[in-house]
Design a protein around this nucleic acid. Structure first.
Length: 873
RNA sequence: GUGCGUGUAGCUCAGUGGGAGAGCACCACCUUGACACGGUGGGGGUCGUAGGUUCAAUCCCUACCACGCACACCA
């Protein structure tokens, strides 16, 4: 597209495949995505949520990452110090699970490989597959600063993790303790509360009778988990429950081993549920754990990390070694046989499931590492409450607030190998040494415990611990780098609402604690993507759409536009319709062909910024410039407000329905010839810049083909509406012309005229030639002059009528008469209502009056026309 | 259970305290100096239900119904 006259050689259909990879390579090789910190310009920084290293692009990335790319490109064009910082997350548990599966295919187990060998394989795997999602992001046109790509397992980031751990430990905010944790028996690791889902499942409620030793009394409890009976240390009832008041303080026997346990009173028991009495197993249930603490009960574990019954801490009889569900079956059988099973009923309730593995969580009492959250949460709550942190849409702020208010300590140790190993060592005597490096640990051990013999804690840290540092660790913290100085805090975080707890809140807490400022003042929550029926997209349902397939079919620009046009500011989900991408491909083709037209004009195109003198502008010129002016203002406003759906819609309308349908057509009329080249060049150049953040490829291709300044549209300046002349009167007149056009086209249609057949237009003398001939172009009309009508151009335009068979005109006028009469009636009724004129806003009343007058005018016109046809009115 | 969100044309969704909108789909016509991945015209909705506030409600309030989501220690 280098020669202005080459368009006839251009294909009629835009081919994104021929454009997108070439432009992307050019952009990346030219370093257009790269930026250095520059305190002289306002920063616009987004830290990319690091995708899992094993991940692949899915539609969810479309709704989250496209807005980030749009914002970065927009702010770069505005001249900001804009940088989008990319990276990858090592995704400890997820990656380890994938790796274990891969090894299994080779017949290797994790343990046979050993820790070092396994980690080596994990690195190898990450290097091989870690590039996949990033290359997919390139295909989608995403332009982060690849030169600054980070990985959570990088040396620098790992050092930051160790430093944070050590500091929190020394401040007493990290501790080691035996607590009830969520054990994932499949992943063989603990998971945090935030990674546990509660899913409704069909189950049973068993009523079990616990008799007194001497058989004089008994108490019946209801349980869904009879296997935990082995670890029962008490029966609890509500203190106010009169049925059991006499039994509190007495003892009963747990029927399986006939061990005696006390009956205690605890307010957490719901008297109305089940039998009103509950068995207490502190080592295997969160509620029971709390009861156990309150009543200082012993807490024997009866299950090991394989979720098998173990007698290590308490007598478990013949059930030792049974897997938890085998044990449940056996125990129910035995209870039934011994007559202790009073009742068995079907019951549906929420079961705790590990988000990652889908396995039922086993609460276990275990020695683990925790972060004390309350002291960290308080400043994070404060930041939200005093407005230093806001959410878009606002309502998500309440989610954040509620969670922080009810926060519990965070279990951070994981029993996987792939991740940041705890910077913790133990002496043979069991003393704990926490240090950033092994050397430091040795030095401390020597000094404090007079030993150099240390064993490192095998556990690794929760993935979210390192991602919680992301906004500052990627900037080089704890070093005082220029990046950290200029680019912390970043300007906005974009993410899905499902990780507000897992990630957002933790970044805020850790950012405040270690850097002293919120990591971002604004959190934009992007919608989740579902299929057109509102179902979650999943491989098993077969309804998942691969964005790469969409790019293949429609191009990356079309994918982005198709996605953005479905986004709504307040929406929490997108019901994704592939047809939107197809429409967007058509839109791109429209742009392509409009460009072919513009370039094929014999006029040649002047410099993009040179408009004709205002006095020389035609009605159509003035109108399209008005529309451009307003569209620029609107686009800036919408992008600043993160309203991507309306931004996409706005530029779409401008390009297709205003520029192509009306203005480009107008340039085919003779009176627009003198100015059209300059106006087309100016407007189209601006339009491409407005569209560029959304559709980067085609806009670059077109912009480069048009007269332009600079090497790339990426760094072209964002359009400024103050540079576009505004003439509201001319714009209004053009709109009157549009209405006349529609009226006459409708008439043509009713007359059944073929498109090439001309229609005589009875045009009042006071419609200027230039305007009349434009109307003639729009309507395939022949201008025939009649006497002047009305005093304004608008009135004269409204009076233009096509010459049609008498009968047809008669019918149209009759219909029009009926319509206008009812309008006039409505207006008069409204204005005749004293309540309305007295109480409604004056401008509303005035507007109503204007409308009524206009209708009365039109009505007179129609009546006159009918009278002229000899119709009595 | 508590909280949040959504209910507008066949579908996906905009929208406003003062006469209901878009795209797609549908119907009809059409290769007019770029575009059939196109153009022009058209049909189609008592704005979930019932009350209330108001001169005026699709929009504000209340209740209800339906759907979705989050949180929650009824074992």
């Amino acid at each position: 597209m280098s020669s202005p006259h080459a368009s006839t050689e251009l294909p009629k259909t835009y081919d994104p495949k021929a454009v997108e990879p070439r432009l992307y390579r050019h952009w990346e090789e030219s370093g257009f995505f790269h930026e250095e910190p520059d305190p002289a310009r306002p920063p616009f920084i987004i830290a990319m949520p690091p995708p899992n290293v094993t991940g692949r692009a899915h539609l969810g990335h479309g709704s989250t990452y496209t807005p980030m790319d749009v914002l970065t490109r927009y702010h770069r064009m505005r001249g900001d110090n804009a940088d989008w910082l990319p990276g990858l997350d090592h995704a400890a548990i997820a990656t380890e699970a994938v790796l274990v599966r891969e090894l299994a295919k080779e017949g290797i187990t994790r343990d046979s490989l050993g820790r070092e060998g396994f980690i080596e394989r994990a690195w190898e795997w990450s290097r091989t597959y870690g590039g996949t999602i990033n290359s997919q992001f390139r295909t989608l046109g995403f332009g982060p600063d690849w030169q600054r790509e980070r990985f959570t397992m990088d040396d620098g980031l790992s050092a930051a993790v160790r430093k944070v751990f050590v500091e929190l430990y020394r401040e007493g905010l990290i501790y080691r303790g035996k607590r009830l944790i969520n054990w994932d028996p499949k992943g063989k690791t603990t998971v945090s509360d935030a990674e546990v889902d509660h899913v409704e499942r069909d189950a049973h409620l068993w009523h079990v009778r616990y008799p007194a030793k001497d058989g004089t009394y008994a108490i019946t409890v209801a349980t869904t988990r009879p296997e935990t009976m082995l670890g029962d240390v008490a029966i609890a009832v509500h203190p106010d429950d009169e049925r059991y008041a006499a039994l509190v303080g007495k003892h009963v026997c747990m029927p399986l081993t006939m061990r005696e346990i006390p009956i205690v009173a605890d307010a957490s028991v719901e008297a109305a549920f089940g039998t009103g009495a509950v068995k207490v197993t502190p080592a295997h249930d969160p509620t029971d754990y709390e009861i156990g603490l309150r009543h200082e009960l012993s807490m024997p574990s009866i299950m090991d990390f394989d979720a098998r019954i173990t007698g290590a801490e308490i007598e478990v009889g013949r059930y030792a070694g049974l897997e938890r569900y085998e044990a449940r079956r056996a125990i129910v059988e035995d209870l039934r046989a011994s007559g202790h099973l009073v009742k068995e009923e079907a019951y549906r309730h929420a079961v705790a499931i590990s988000e990652r593995s889908g396995e039922v969580i086993e609460p276990l009492l275990s020695l683990q590492w925790f972060v004390k959250m309350k002291p960290l949460a308080e400043p994070a709550l404060q930041a939200y409450r005093d407005g230093r942190l806001r959410f878009v849409p606002e309502r998500y702020g309440r989610t954040y607030e509620t969670w922080l208010e009810n926060i519990r300590d965070w279990n951070i140790s994981r029993q996987v190998w792939w991740g940041h190993q705890l910077p913790v060592w133990y002496t043979p005597g069991g003393d704990v040494v926490v240090a950033e490096t092994e050397d430091e640990a040795r030095e401390i051990a020597q000094r404090r415990f007079a030993t150099s013999e240390l064993v490192r804690d095998p556990d690794t840290l929760d993935t979210w611990f390192s991602s919680g540092l992301w906004p500052f660790s990627i900037l080089g913290w704890p070093e005082k780098t220029p990046e950290l100085e200029c680019w912390y805090p970043s300007q906005v975080l974009v993410t899905g609402w499902e990780i507000i707890f897992l990630w957002v809140a933790r970044m805020v807490m850790l950012g405040l604690h270690f850097v002293g400022q919120v990591p971002f003042p604004t959190v934009f929550i992007s919608p989740l993507v579902f299929d057109a029926q509102g179902r979650k997209m999943s491989k098993s349902l077969g309804n998942a759409i691969d964005p790469m397939d969409l790019v293949e079919s429609y191009g990356a620009d079309a994918f982005r536009m198709g996605m953005l046009r479905q986004m709504r500011l307040e929406g929490q989900e997108i019901r994704f319709q592939e047809s939107r991408c197809e429409e967007a491909r058509n839109f791109n083709n429209k742009i392509w062909n409009a460009t072919r037209y513009i370039l094929s004009l014999p006029d040649g195109l002047p410099n993009a910024m040179t408009l004709p003198n205002v006095a020389d502008l035609t009605l159509a010129d003035a109108w399209i410039l008005n529309r451009l002016h307003d569209t620029i203002e609107e686009m800036s406003r919408l992008l600043d407000a993160f309203d991507f759906g309306n931004a996409a819609e706005t530029i779409w309308r401008f390009v297709w329905y205003e520029f192509c349908d009306w203005y480009v057509e107008a340039t085919k009329a003779p009176e627009n010839r003198a100015t059209r080249a300059a106006v087309l060049s100016f407007v189209w150049n601006n339009a491409m810049r407005l569209l560029h953040p959304i559709a980067p490829f085609i806009t670059e291709e077109v912009w480069l083909a048009l007269p332009h300044d600079g090497a790339t549209i990426m760094t072209a300046t964002w359009p400024d509406h103050f540079e576009v002349p505004v003439d509201r009167d001319a714009a209004r007149s053009f709109e009157a012309l549009q209405r006349a056009t529609e009226r006459i086209r409708n008439l043509r249609s009713e007359m059944g005229l073929a498109p090439r057949q001309t229609l005589a237009l009875e045009t009042p003398e006071n419609v200027p030639d230039a305007v009349a001939s434009l109307l003639a172009l729009y309507t395939m009309g022949d201008v025939e002059r009649v006497a002047a009508r009305g005093t304004t151009l608008d009135e004269a335009l409204a009076a233009i009528e096509g010459r049609a068979p008498q009968a047809l005109l008669l019918e149209r006028n009759r219909k029009e008469l009926a319509r206008l009469r009812s309008e006039v009636e409505r207006g008069e009724k409204k204005l005749g209502n004293a309540q309305f004129t007295a109480k409604a806003a004056p401008e509303v009343v005035a507007k109503e009056r204007e409308k009524l007058d206009a209708y009365k005018n039109e009505l007179r016109n129609v009546e006159a026309a009918l009278a002229a046809m000899g119709e009595p009115v």
